[in-house]
Every structure is written in structure tokens, then in C-alpha cells.
């Protein structure tokens, strides 16, 4: 074999190895490396189908796109769950830290500006990020569309009201709620950012069950669903970036 043959072989082997080491991204996003570095600090990760990311195939209403994350089939203790929409002007959606009593499950609605991959990165106790992926198609404009809430008569009176209910499921209790809040993202009509940025789920004695950081890619009048392992009393505390606090009890 001459030197060209050897070079060929070497290149082939190198390419093979590189491919094996580099996991293939299920949604082949050009932005993955960027977010892996920026949000996960380039830490060890695996694309993992057990982190289920449910989205509709297309956004019928780009201002209210339902996403649902379920990582319970990992069967491991989850420390953190990050969600982001890779091609959004405001990519980050939530940073969720469920305690022992709270399942690694979350459902909410977000705004998307264009078709985008949606990621959920779940950190297990062994320090590995398990990354679930999905893609939602969209005509777009959800982040820059004028507020529906602000156009409604009397929205100021409803501001901060929480609608909610507890639902008994097979192995858990689901808490569903909706908060009346415009969740201004600072991208529309010169209205500055005004959004709920922090939430805590607490037990009846005030102990923290889970904490949640929200970003203004979350839709206006945000809807949130959590699941508790057991039927226990729960309270929700919320605070927006102007310091308004809201409280609700399930």
C-alpha cells in the first residue's frame, strides 16, 4: 500500500472514531453546541429518549405552544430540568428543581418566533445531563405578536389571579394552574420586560417541594402543571421581576 492508501485509511479511521464519539443529535440542530456550552457548561451529556418532550408537530398559535416534559422513565432522582427553544430570541424557558416529593414532570405553554428544536436537559444525581429533544414547526411571530392579555378589558383587575385545581392521576397528583399575568418579554411595542421569574411549590408547613425559574418565553397568562408523588397539601408562591408576589393553595 502506498502512502496515499495509508493516508486514506488513517482518515477513514479518524472519521469513524469521531463519529462514534460524537452522538448524533436527534433533531440535528446547528445550535446544540452553543447551548451545550452556554446552559450546560459543556458538561457530560447524553441524548436520551427517556426524557420525553411532547410538543405538537406545528404551532397553531405561536403565542401558546404547549410543551410537556416527562423524565420519570429515567428512574433516577432528578436534580434539575432545563428547557429551552433553540431558535427563539429568548431561548430559555424554565429551570426547574424538583424535590423528592415532586415528579420530574412539567407542562406549560411557550411562545415561539419560528420553527425550532425544543430541548429538555435533565440532570441526574450522577452528574450526567440527559437531553430530550423535539421539534415544533411554526409560521412564527409568537414572541413579537402584540399581547392578547393587555388588549382585554379589565385585565388589570384580574392581574395575579390564579386558577387551579388538583387532579388525582393513577400514581400521582397533578396540579394545574393558570396565572393572570401579561409576561411581557420586552420584544413588543416598547413595553419593558414584566414577567413572573420565580416560583416555589411548598408543602402545608411551608417547606420547599420544588423551585422554578421562569423566562419570558413562557406565554402570557402562564399555565403550569406539576405532579406530586403523593396526595399532600401544596402551596404555590410566585414572584415577578417587579416584586409582585402571588400565592395560591391546592
Amino acid at each position: 500500500m502506498d502512502w496515499r492508501g495509508l493516508l486514506c485509511l488513517a482518515l477513514f479511521a479518524w472519521g469513524w472514531e469521531a463519529r462514534a464519539a460524537e452522538q448524533s443529535d436527534p433533531v440535528s440542530s446547528v445550535m446544540w453546541d452553543y447551548y451545550h456550552q452556554r446552559l450546560l457548561d459543556s458538561a457530560a451529556f447524553t441524548f436520551d429518549k427517556r426524557v420525553q418532550v411532547l410538543v405538537p408537530p406545528f404551532a397553531e398559535d405561536a403565542r401558546q405552544v404547549p410543551i410537556q416534559i416527562d423524565a420519570r422513565s429515567l428512574g433516577a432522582r432528578v436534580k434539575r430540568l432545563l428547557v429551552w427553544a433553540e431558535l427563539n430570541p429568548i431561548a430559555q424557558v424554565v429551570d426547574f428543581q424538583p424535590g423528592e416529593q415532586v415528579l420530574p414532570f412539567l407542562a406549560l405553554r411557550i411562545r415561539v418566533e419560528q420553527a425550532t428544536p425544543i430541548r429538555a436537559a435533565v440532570l441526574t444525581e450522577d452528574g450526567l445531563w440527559h437531553v430530550g429533544s423535539a421539534r415544533v414547526d411554526a409560521a412564527g411571530g409568537g414572541c413579537t405578536a402584540p399581547s392578547v392579555v393587555r388588549a382585554e378589558a379589565g385585565w388589570e383587575e384580574r392581574f395575579g389571579q390564579v386558577l387551579g385545581r388538583r387532579f388525582r392521576l393513577e400514581d400521582s397528583d397533578r396540579l394545574r394552574l393558570q396565572v393572570a399575568h401579561p409576561m411581557d418579554n420586552g420584544l413588543v411595542g416598547g413595553i419593558p420586560e414584566f414577567f413572573i421569574e420565580q416560583a416555589e411549590l411548598r408543602d402545608a408547613s411551608g417547606q420547599r417541594l420544588a423551585s422554578l425559574e421562569l423566562f419570558p418565553s413562557v406565554s402570557e397568562n402562564p399555565t403550569l402543571s406539576f405532579e406530586l408523588r403523593e396526595a399532600q397539601g401544596a402551596e404555590l408562591w410566585l414572584r415577578d421581576n417587579n416584586g409582585n408576589e402571588f400565592q395560591a393553595a391546592f
Binding site: F58, E60, D61, Q64, Q161, L163, G164, R165, A248
Partner: peptide
């Protein structure tokens, strides 16, 4: 998929209560 997006929020509202 489209109808759930259009209409489900109304159905949700009818079963949720004020809890604040």
C-alpha cells in the same frame, strides 16, 4: 391538533377554580 389549540383553554377554564 388545531381544535385543541383553539378550544381547550375554554374547557380548562370551566373546571379550574380561583385558588389565589
Amino acid at each position: 391538533i388545531r381544535s385543541v389549540s383553539h378550544l381547550y383553554p375554554r374547557y380548562e377554564h370551566s373546571v379550574l377554580q380561583r385558588i389565589d
